[in-house]
Design a protein around this nucleic acid. Structure first.
Length: 567
DNA sequence: GCCGTTTTCGGCCCGACTGTTTTCAGTCG
């Protein structure tokens, strides 16, 4: 069955190709909007009828038909025709700075260009500068970025890495006395799992000294833009950082604007427009009079909305929810009472159970489960039944002498290729908490992977499926399976799914969290701690869950130990 | 191509910066 992501990708590609082809931009945008809507669907669009597709916002009769065709036949004539004219190697050229759809079309129409080698040849021959809309500077810039394209080109970094850099930038800018207010906005503030660049916003009466301080940041390798109120830098390592300086009276409107997302902003502006207002980064205006601007709350309120956490601002229904007073009360870190996925030196953890317990108590956790690997994970010296029982006795002994935090006997049991588990049912039944995870053969075909997960979920000993997709952000693709079907069975079996807090996992994703909630499946937010400090990673899992509209009630480890179990 | 408490046709978010212009288009966020 075709996944939502595959459908969305085809729609996005059509949008890109139409754009370079010089097609009406609103038609282009329609394809992109539709792609986004498909990605945000909590259910598989492959299971929807054309009528149901038509009801999805941004999808009308025409696109509903096209999507149906795509799902049924696996391809779309329009897509195929366009792809013949605009092969991927050609579209990739848009990654070069300054080269957008319009200039790319110029290149295609007037020069013999099919990829970056052709482009480089023509640029060296000085043919670009002769085109209307290009110039000598543009030509040089293109040659430059072609030369060092390897490490440039929009690589996203993890939220954690971005946080470390953001902290240093903020400390650096705060030294400037002109700075009255300072926030890191953009996808960082929305707590996205990866960040493409950092957007800093400062309030100051005079922008000039702030700009100077910004440019003096130690790690700057190039300044890519420097206007009066806006500047862009590239740091060593390739991260782009943008700074915008506004007067304090505009800080709220600017923060709203720079936090985004883009589609959230568009939605707000449409509402503003309908009320006869103008909304921009300086404020909300009616004619010449300012309605709001100093704080985000003011702007939202004037638009008939309540303030909402940045994590929700993806235009996935949060605006409508705010209009009707139905915004979720998002999960917070201090609502987590326990952690249900941790490791110790019995397998690949780096700290003893005692050390882990001390830190857990310090963090204010009421309980945690020791869930070391099972024997299949030989590399980590996974536990066989004998060592697992030994560990169980140790946990009971340690637990008896502890105050403040309770220990659970658990396991992270491997889900084998056929969906059976790495330890016998009788052994698992002795435990307090069973996390079941796939570690090997992640690249199985989707049908087999779905069966494999479902078989594990059907096992009555399994409490939760850990890191369900197995992805490692930037290193390993998620395994493919039918999420809707897995959720259906998980709901039936009262089996929870994990939101793993490791920064390179964050698995489930935000939209998968939404889908789980929609299906009535409970979640567990876990650290997967391999050291005492790792308990602090829970923050990132909470971020991800918040982006998926998750509330305390949706999460098992917000419950007291006594009412933890679902069955 | 979508969509409708202005509308089934005619709109579709808004502004800074850059380079190429000689009053503005393209790109970017």
């Amino acid at each position: 069955m075709m996944q939502n992501e595959e459908v969305a990708k085809v729609l996005d590609e059509i949008g890109d190709m139409l754009e370079v082809g010089g097609e009406n931009f609103f038609r282009v945008r329609a394809y992109r909007n539709a792609a986004r809507s498909v990605r945000d669907q909590p259910v598989a669009v492959a299971e929807l009828s054309p009528q149901q597709l038509d009801e999805i916002p941004g999808i009308g009769a025409d696109l509903a038909g096209k999507i149906s065709t795509l799902i049924k036949t696996g391809e779309l004539p329009l897509h195929r025709e366009l792809a013949e004219k605009f092969p991927p190697a050609l579209l990739e050229l848009r990654d070069l700075p300054g080269l957008g759809p319009k200039r790319l079309k110029l290149l295609i129409d007037h020069l013999d260009i099919h990829g970056k080698d052709d482009l480089e040849r023509e640029a060296r021959a000085g043919k670009l500068r002769k085109l209307r809309g290009f110039g000598a500077k543009m030509e040089e810039r293109i040659l430059e970025s072609l030369a060092r394209r390897e490490h440039a080109a929009g690589k996203r970094i993890s939220y954690v890495e971005a946080a470390r850099i953001a902290e240093r930038l903020v400390a650096h800018l705060r030294k400037c006395r002109a700075v009255e207010q300072l926030e890191v906005a953009g996808s960082f503030r929305r707590r996205r799992e990866t960040v493409g660049d950092l957007d800093l916003l400062a309030a100051a009466a005079r922008a000039d000294p702030v700009m100077k301080q910004f440019a003096a940041f130690p790690d700057v390798i190039t300044v890519t833009g420097a206007g009066e109120t806006k500047a862009s830098l590239v740091l060593r390592g390739g991260l782009q950082v943008d700074l915008r300086v506004v007067p304090q009276a505009s800080f709220g409107a600017a923060l709203l604007y720079f936090t985004g997302s883009k589609s959230h902003n568009v939605h707000l502006r449409r509402i503003a427009q309908a009320r006869g207002f103008l909304l921009n980064e300086y404020g909300l205006f009616r004619g010449r009079s300012t309605i709001a601007g100093k704080t985000e709350e003011q702007v939202y309120k004037a638009l008939g909305l309540t303030w909402m956490p940045p994590e929700l601002r993806e235009d996935r229904g949060e605006v409508e929810a705010a209009q009707s007073g139905r915004l979720p009360n998002l999960l917070s870190r201090n609502e987590l009472r326990g952690d249900l996925h941790t490791h110790s030196t019995y397998t690949d953890g780096r700290a003893s159970i005692e050390e882990m317990a001390r830190k857990a108590a310090e963090m204010g956790l009421e309980y945690f489960a020791v869930t070391d690997h099972s024997r299949r994970i030989a590399m980590a010296h996974g536990l066989d039944p004998k060592r697992l029982r030994e560990q169980g006795r140790a946990i009971e002994r340690i637990g008896g002498s502890l105050r403040g935090v309770k220990l659970l006997r658990g396991i992270e049991v491997d889900i084998l290729e056929d969906g059976s588990l790495d330890l016998p049912d009788g052994v698992l039944a002795e435990l307090d908490w069973v996390v079941a995870c796939v570690h090997y053969k992640l690249e199985q075909n989707p049908r087999d992977m779905t069966r494999r997960l479902i078989k594990a979920i059907r096992n009555p000993n399994v409490d939760v499926i850990g890191h369900p997709s197995g992805r490692l952000i930037g290193h390993r693709e998620p395994s493919e399976f039918d999420l809707a079907e897995v959720l259906r069975v998980a709901h039936e079996e009262r089996c929870a799914l994990e939101v793993n807090s490791q920064p390179d996992r964050l698995d489930l994703t935000d939209t998968a969290c939404m889908a789980a909630k929609h299906a009535g499946v409970k979640l567990v937010v876990s650290s997967d701690a391999h050291s005492p400090r790792d308990f602090e990673l829970l923050e990132y899992g909470v971020n991800q869950a918040r982006r998926g509209w998750i509330e305390a009630d949706d999460v098992l480890n917000t419950r007291p130990l006594k009412s933890l179990r679902q069955r």
